[in-house]
Design a protein around this nucleic acid. Sequence first.
RNA 1: GCGCUUGUAGCUCAGUGGAUAGAGUAUUGGCCUCCGAAGCCAAGGGUCGCUGGUUCGAUUCCAGCCAAGCGCGCCA
Length: 576
Amino acid sequence: MIADLKTHLLDLLRRALAGVAPGQQLAITLERPKQASHGDFATNLALQLAKPLRMNPREVAQRLVSELPPSPWVAKAEVAGAGFINLFLNNAARLQPLGAVLERGEHYGRSRLGAGKKIQVEFVSANPTGPLHVGHGRGAAYGASLSCVLAFAGFDVHREYYVNDAGRQMDILALSTWLRYLELHEVAVPFPPNAYQGAYVTEMAHQIRVAHGPRYLHEAEVVLAGVPGLEPDKEAHLDGLITNAKELLGDDFAYIHAHVLSEQLADCRDDLSEFGVHFEHWFSERSLYDTGLVERTVAQLEKHGHIYTQDGAKWFRSTSFGDEKDRVVQRENGLYTYFASDIAYHLNKFERGFDRVIDIWGADHHGYIPRVKGAIQALGLDTAKLEVALVQFAVLYRSGQKTSMSTRSGEFVTLRELRHEVGNDAARFFYVLRKSDQHLDFDLDLAKSQSNENPVYYIQYAHARLCSVLAQWNGEEDDLLAAELSVLTGERELALCARLAEFPEVIEGAARDYAPHTVAFYLKDLAADFHSYYNAERILVEDPDLRLARLALALAVRQVIQTGLRLLGVSAPHSM
RNA sequence: GCGCUUGUAGCUCAGUGGAUAGAGUAUUGGCCUCCGAAGCCAAGGGUCGCUGGUUCGAUUCCAGCCAAGCGCGCCA
């Protein structure tokens, strides 16, 4: 409808252009002016033409206006400012979007932009070594909202969580749990400061003790045998302990490893699920090793001459692809690096036939992009299909003080804690209310103590008000779909219609730019327009025609708020 | 040092090659016998970091500088 209207206006301008400057090929831009006095649409066409035609822009504008063919929708066209052409629509045209919302209902705003293309969105992918913290929450909220927007814009979206279940961090978690277990049995092994400190580790140790008693007990001397001291290299100390644990426990270490992994993954899954964040796939890093894909990937790179050996390690020549230095894929000790499995993972993604793959990473991974893209190119794949969206870290403030968010130190505010304090709706909305590449100062005190000031309530309140009015009318909502809308002539009403008309454009923009925050800002604007209208005019008036038309407008606004909030994972309560 | 990101109202943040740069919050003053005051209306508050360049026009694009965050491992 409104797309047709825009097409119609563009067509009018194109014909005027042909009359004034035959042969001029210009991309005509049509924008919605910020000020109502500048019309419903404006174009800078005359300003663009002024130079090639060597004419005064206002004069060009004047000639374009006089060449503009008559239209059933355009009330007037006028020249303004430096040479803008402002187009004013008649009321029938301005009411069109309202009719479109009523007709399409929950599908209003849906787009064919994605054309059913398969697109994978991988996000969160936090190591399952402890509870998710508020930093992960941002990636979760962003990824989930973006995925919904993309799906609404016509993409076939696949959400995926990459589970880092193969690396050293998981070994450290298993070790940490075992050490806590020994501690519970009063075995005197000092708990290393760089092991996982969180209380959940002790809880898991406790569970293991309850389930298996003393089965995993060993004397302190054997546990510490041959382990280098904490100084000078505390990581070497940790590695020594891991080596001993694996030897002493054998298959039992694998059991503890598997146990802590499944515990943490289950916790993570529950946490995200309660946050309204769901994944189609949980992809195991370890499976890349089990299926031999990591090995095959490196071999393939080697075959094509992108690998060389130096100092006993295998290096990928990523400098050939614009990286600042070459990167190790297989260490001197034979173990593959995280990078190696990540190349294999991306190869696997491409082999699954996605038209586009989006990785959502924390901004601290930005230096990682050139090497991954380089590897993809080296494998003969199309790097343009991979897009990386960086999400800046949330910097957490408590009582005006910056708070640490390290998982290993155990000093962090968990996502679960945050959700319980401020609620899922406020948390989801708060996270997505800034563009993703903007640093986020997350003021805990503000979020927790003043949650009523969170703008999400402003929008939800508008929704509840609309529900309330419609309930008091107590009629059949289906009857509103056929209401005669032409009695709506007030500026506020027509402004609301214009706002409704923007929604499909906002969705397409958000999908194109990976910017779900624009949906949040749009909803704030829509709610503001409605609150303003609601205070100025009465909806349930005596005149039955006007009442029905206003109720139809209310229904449409409620629908778009509902749709928008759903995309952001925020509830639309009927009362609050 | 190099790279990426950021710099807009007291604070937190949107936005744009175009007309008078916006919102929330904070401050001040109004609006409920009337559909929900978690709301509305109004006022004050700005060198869009600085300097150049491109352009009819730059807060927006480009370069340099200043400042902040992050990254620069045979960690993941």
